[in-house]
């Protein structure tokens, strides 16, 4: 599903974010990418979204060679990838329903599809009762659920989560992890960058540890360190 082969990323300011990283992730896997700040976790995610180009090496996603992907096709690539961030990235002037519907609307899905799928996915993430709530009426955990619903509503192959529990308290974080696990169980490949040690240790999933842009550990059913 995801393959990085000898990927090096040097930013224009000379900072080396990734150095000779090779990683294979199979379809349906759940993978933690851990490491201290600046270890290259976010760069890895940005490469998969084709927000950045690798300086060296090849990136493949869902059988597509991203290096050779033309710019105008990038939006179509991203329709197969769900993204979740630490800050939820919700639109404050839209309800939960509208925030999720927005993701379908802007890729041109018809209204009947939107009206069917949006309540369905919000129900799935446990917000069936809060379709018409605005983000400021929701708790942090609920807002993150809306953002997960938005990421999953178009049935992506891959879910990329960058510190999704970074702003949440431990018990809410556990709920969010249960939800991500649930998403993973229906076949979605999940790649989650985090430095939440308790969660990584509790989940016992594959762990890829980065340090100063290098893979220092790749362990099935691993712990944080």
């Amino acid at each position: 599903m995801i393959s990085l082969q000898h990927v090096t990323k040097v930013y224009r300011n000379g900072v080396t974010a990734l150095e000779d990283v090779s990683v294979e992730i199979e379809k349906g896997e759940f993978v933690f990418v851990v490491g201290p700040s600046g270890s290259g976790k976010s760069t890895l995610i940005r490469l998969l979204l084709k927000e950045e180009e690798p300086s060296k090496g090849d990136v493949y996603l869902a059988g597509k060679h991203l290096n050779k992907f033309s710019v105008w096709k990038v939006p179509h690539l991203r329709r197969n990838i769900g993204t979740v961030f630490q800050d939820y990235k919700l639109l404050q002037d839209k309800t939960s329903f509208e925030n999720v519907a927005f993701a379908l609307e802007v890729i041109g899905k018809p209204k009947n599809v939107i009206d069917q799928r949006v309540p369905e996915i919000l129900e799935y993430v446990g917000l069936g009762e809060k379709l018409n709530s605005y983000p400021d009426e929701l708790s942090g955990g609920e807002q993150q659920r809306v953002s997960i619903a938005r990421a999953c509503v178009n049935r992506p192959l891959v879910l990329l989560a960058d510190e999704p529990t970074g702003n949440l308290d431990p018990s809410t974080s556990v709920d969010i992890m249960r939800l991500l696990d649930k998403v993973n169980r229906i076949g979605t490949t999940v790649v989650m960058a985090t430095h939440d040690q308790a969660i990584v240790d509790a989940m016992r999933k594959r762990v890829i540890e980065l340090d100063k842009g290098r893979v220092v550990r790749d362990q099935a059913r691993g712990v944080y360190s």
């Binding site: 979204l49 105008w72 939006p75 179509h76 690539l77 991203r78 329709r79 197969n80 990838i81 993204t83 990235k89 639109l91 927005f102 993701a103 802007v106 890729i107 041109g108 938005r150 178009n154």
Partner: peptide
């Protein structure tokens, strides 16, 4: 810009934006 950022993330085409 927030909306546009989200549109990009969910795969809206440039023309759509």
């Amino acid at each position: 810009r927030r909306e546009i950022g989200i549109m990009r993330l969910v795969g809206a085409t440039n023309w759509r934006i």
